[in-house]
Design a protein around this nucleic acid. Structure first.
Lengths: 317, 317
DNA sequence: AGCACTTATGTAAGTGCTAACGTAATTGAT
DNA sequence: ATCAATTACGTTAGCACTTACATAAGTGCT
């Protein structure tokens, strides 16, 4: 699923959704056992049950919400007969909120539901490997400490200040060759079986026949790639250029093209061409700037169905 | 903190809060680096960035929200110039949503922020022990499978059908003796150092001097406790009676009292008394029903400051 | 005692989401 | 070809929560 693929980036949304699901489950459990409690009211009511009468502010601090939220929830619960309000005679601003006798009686019957939820959630968490509940509690503390924002900002500054670097092929970066190219192929066309083959085994399909692959990296992580394919002796093709969305406009594409052209020169190639598609306008601009010229006719015997652009390298003006 | 103490029961609220914090962190990171993206819009925009133009319904399914939510978000983003809408000429009901050129350009500069967030969250999660992110993803799947509700309901039925059972003291339940009594002491009075001592070491303070402790359990988990203290030869005191909130009204208190009285008889005690407080009305009713009678005068030399009720056992009528 | 500060709480307006409903367009079974 | 079912998606009302503001009541310093 898309949200899961985004991993840490979509954590907010994922946790929100999970939270919503858990509320729904609890609601369902209360309803199925004939109780009327709403799961959202649980923290407030439970607090009063175990701690006894309390003020709005105290409850808000305990359950981690604003006093306004508690104030509004309290108004609703008072209308529903769950709470009664006594005045605090020491301080006229405060009101002591207390469970009504009826509410107290209701809550006193909910132990089995609570225990069932506790056990069920615990069992489900246990099936997920590791101490999920413990780790989650630790993560809450970690986030509450507030260090996280600072760390991320520092990290961002470092990444943003880094320069794009071009690296020759590295086997441990092979997956990125697949990932980056699959990205634009899926977006603009479709990932064909032949693409999968070439992308997942570039050693066989690119390097072995006499080609080359380059990677662009920023702060140690790959953000782009490009391949030089050997078509025939002295004839090379630029292909499989991809830059990660999010890291475009930093010159990675241009640097990759330069590297590929330099490699083409190093191998004393005669002809360097590429095939592309009109849809890929930003890429075409890059090719033009690097010295590729549009060829009027389509390439004879092209092996790409998606190609409707044929360009040949004529060197920089 | 209270919410954490409630553990699995308040998971919905805890995850909601965590989600909110993470949104806030992401917003802060975007703001600090001069970008205008709102974290809540990320899933939608990111989806369009990696997948290309899509319809409202497709996006909704991908990011796990209702089409209404997406429809409204889209309207807002269109007003803000992030999205443009093309008509799908094959199906006039649908509109193809697409990032505006400007939005595309903005998103193409956000890679460093995203990577920083990813690294930061991952590092924080790593500090929490276990594979938090992996376990969380597994938990999401677990919850999505929908099995959980059924499990909890079955568990609830079992617990609810179980009968309260009285057990003699067990060392491995000692913590419950503390927990249950600390509960009402903190709620109605205060947990004094002397209470802590007695509650955390009942072997020394209750059993060794010739007393006894009983536990009430439901479906294998402790829900109540009560102690018989030996005051002098032949003189015993009922004390430290507590039933867990949520499991009251199931007769546990009465059964515990019966067990304590039976133990008093077994030891051929002469006098059985107790001290309590007017505030604890439900407990007082239990005592009366078990055969305790209010004594007019306060007990001479009482060691409880909080006691204003003195009752003596006279047997059942 | 007086007055600035702080605290407790309520109210109003806004946000992000859902559920419920409505309408137009498309699909599928006959 | 017709018409009921389905699909796409917008609109409305409502909910839970937040932020911003308002107000009354307490506190502390002089």
């Amino acid at each position: 699923m898309f949200l899961q693929d985004q991993g840490e980036l979509a954590m907010g949304s994922r946790l929100k959704a999970l939270s919503e699901r858990l509320y729904a489950i609890a609601d369902e459990v209360y309803r199925a056992s004939g109780q009327t409690l709403e799961a959202r009211a649980f923290p407030l009511l439970r607090y009063l049950q175990v701690k006894g009468p309390a003020t709005v502010t105290e409850i808000a601090a305990a359950i981690g919400q604003t006093h306004s939220a508690v104030s509004q929830a309290v108004a609703k619960l008072r209308r529903g007969g769950w709470l009664v309000r006594r005045r605090d005679r020491a301080d006229a601003r405060r009101g002591l909120l207390e469970l009504s006798a009826e509410a107290e009686a209701r809550l006193d019957r909910l132990g089995p539901q609570w225990r069932a939820i506790r056990r069920g959630v615990r069992a489900a968490a246990a099936r997920c490997g590791g101490d999920l509940l413990g780790a989650l509690a630790a993560f809450e503390r970690e986030v509450a400490r507030g260090e996280l924002t600072r760390e991320i900002l520092a990290e961002h500054a470092r990444i943003d200040a880094a320069r794009v670097e071009i690296h020759p092929y590295r086997a441990d970066w092979r997956e990125h060759f697949y990932r980056l190219n699959a990205g634009w192929l899926e977006r603009y066309f479709a990932l064909e079986p032949i693409d999968r083959q070439v992308l997942s085994d570039p050693d066989t399909h690119v390097l072995a026949p006499g080609g080359a692959i380059f990677f662009a990296a920023l702060d140690g992580e790959v953000i782009g790639t490009c391949a030089l394919l050997k078509e025939a002796p002295g004839v090379y093709e630029v292909s499989k250029m991809a830059v990660e969305p999010g890291f475009r406009g930093r010159g990675a594409g241009g640097l990759l093209l330069d590297a590929v052209i330099a490699e083409f020169r190093r191998r004393r190639g005669r002809t360097l061409f590429l095939e592309s598609n009109r849809k890929l306008a930003p890429a075409l601009r890059l090719y033009e700037r690097a010295g590729f010229v549009h060829h009027p006719a389509p390439r004879p015997g092209s092996h790409y169905a998606r190609a409707d652009v044929y360009m040949v390298y004529e060197g920089k003006r």
